[in-house]
Amino acid sequence: MTGVPALTTELVAIPSHEDETAAGDYIEDWLREETGAAVERDRHGNVIARKGSGEDSLALVGHHDVVPPEASQVGDDGFRVEERDGRIYGRGAADMKGAVAAAMCAFRDADPDCELVFASFVGEEVGGTGARGAIEDGFSPDYAIVGEGSTNYSKDGVTDVVIAHRGRRGSTIHVEGAAAHASEPEAGENAIYRATDAIETVRNLEFPETTVLGHEIRGSVAVTEIEGGTAWNVIPDACTVTVDERTVPDGRAPLSHVEEIPGVTLKIDQDLPPMACDEPAFGDFVFEAATAVQEGDPEQVLKPHATDAGWLAEAGTTCVVCGAAEPGEAHTKDESVSMAALDRCYDIYRRCAEEFELSG
């Protein structure tokens, strides 16, 4: 019977940065061969499986797409994978094929006390396209454990439980002016000057903040790029400013204030939603399971960046995040995951599936 480390190695070896089809095929075929579940490959490429029954449904959720690899991570027949010092190295090991493998094995082995759902989405790295498509098509579990990283967040050697994370809103401020010769600046309207007024407005905005299950979570907002002007002797008639905002549940910075400046408009380019566990009992249930299966003392923690849990929570699913990846591992040239953390995640997922009881 395939174990979590071996399955992780198989998944990591399959390139899935440009096309997730092969990885999805492997996951679908494995689930059909290894489980008695009803397995679906939806029109987006997501792999979804279900087994068991109960008043509520619990989903183990991941994604099988990865960011583009470094040259050192590519071999002749796929991605390079290496096991050493208790870790698995390779693109996607941490983010997040290791947790997908742990969820697949837990799904296979669990005798669930609920309807147990496994879902591995495509397109997480490009804005959650797979999760959004599944939700639009009716994917709506009552509860979900999303297997993004939560290991070593509070301290080394533990897998924590994330009860809230920030979202990301990316915006572009478009500024119009009127061109003129630079020798007669008063004949035009300098778009860069107007842009500096907009930047000052952004700079003075208060960061959004809120409290989730007793934990304070604070966002941020920052100007990250500016572009304008066509020549050294021309008053610029256009300028653009990029703004990166980290949002919090029910909290956004009032960026629309920049549109009070003449010639300034705001365009929201991306808005990845934050997540907050909206039922304390579920956060406590997963936390108690995490505590029971490991020697260390995990904590309920916050995560600084967005995951597919945001889309699910926005659609009404009660979520937490719990997975094997550690801070600083995802998207790196030496990306790796701890096999001990993978085993912990397997134990957490299986225990939650077999002891799930929140109805009423």
Rank of each mutant, 00 (worst) to 15 (best):
A59G: 01
A22R: 12
I14L: 03
T196S: 15
T230F: 07
P304R: 11
G228L: 10
A306P: 06
A94F: 03
D25T: 12
A315N: 08
T224K: 10
A13T: 11
E354F: 02
T201Q: 09
T201C: 11
R351H: 11
T172C: 05
I135N: 05
A198H: 11
G123N: 03
G328R: 12
D29T: 15
I199L: 07
G45W: 02
P298I: 06
E115D: 05
A119Q: 06
D334Y: 06
A164E: 05
L302W: 06
L272N: 10
G147K: 03
V337E: 10
G45S: 05
E326T: 13
V74N: 00
A324G: 07
F285C: 02
Q300N: 03
A292M: 02
K51M: 08
F282K: 02
K51L: 06
A309F: 05
D156Q: 13
N190Q: 10
G138M: 01
E357S: 14
G214D: 09
H174M: 11
I217W: 02
I48A: 09
P68K: 09
G90N: 07
G128Q: 01
I145M: 13
A340D: 15
V100A: 04
S154V: 05
A178I: 15
R50I: 00
G98P: 15
G296P: 09
T2D: 15
C239H: 12
I268H: 10
P254H: 03
